[in-house]
Amino acid sequence: MRPVVDYARLREEVMEVAALTNYNRASLIPVLRTVKEKYRGIDSEAMQIIADVLGCHPVEVNAVATFYAFLNPKPEGRFIFRLCRTYSCELAGKEEIAKQLSRNLGIGFGETSADGMFSLEWANCMGMCDQGPAMLVNDEIHTKLTPNRVAVIVQDYKKRPEAHTPARAAEQPLLGENPVECES
């Protein structure tokens, strides 16, 4: 029952960000960030709208989106858990954290939960090496993780208003390769 993405609105949102740089291609990454943040994915239609607004080819938008870890065009969860995998965090015990995260979220790395709520990924160094293990959940940073704290943090996100009704995540418009159409 996911609502169909309103592409006309998406175009306006793209135009708004692009206007800041005179519709120059220089706004491609800010535009992609905006779309990704809002719709959690960047689908074929969105890429073509962006290409049209910025006057470049859709394939170039596709190429840029797949280059950057934070612009992954595939649809992802409302909360993206990114656990640091670099050496300082490894020394600090990231493996246990990884196991605990996977258990609490019920998904493996590179996966998104069925309710569209959570995604779990590895990230490279996020500059919290003195306070590892560290992870980002969207833009929020969590440091000095222990398996116990992970359980609490995950619970906390599950209680957030955005997540309160599990069904709500699924009601958000979501851009993906096969967007779910409204059933009549």
Partner: peptide, 18 residues
């Protein structure tokens, strides 16, 4: 947007240019 190589100055500029 999540790319270590953009710390290289010319890659950083490419990224800024979209």
């Amino acid at each position: 947007a999540g790319a270590y190589v953009c710390g290289e100055e010319t890659a950083l500029i490419e990224s800024l240019e979209g």
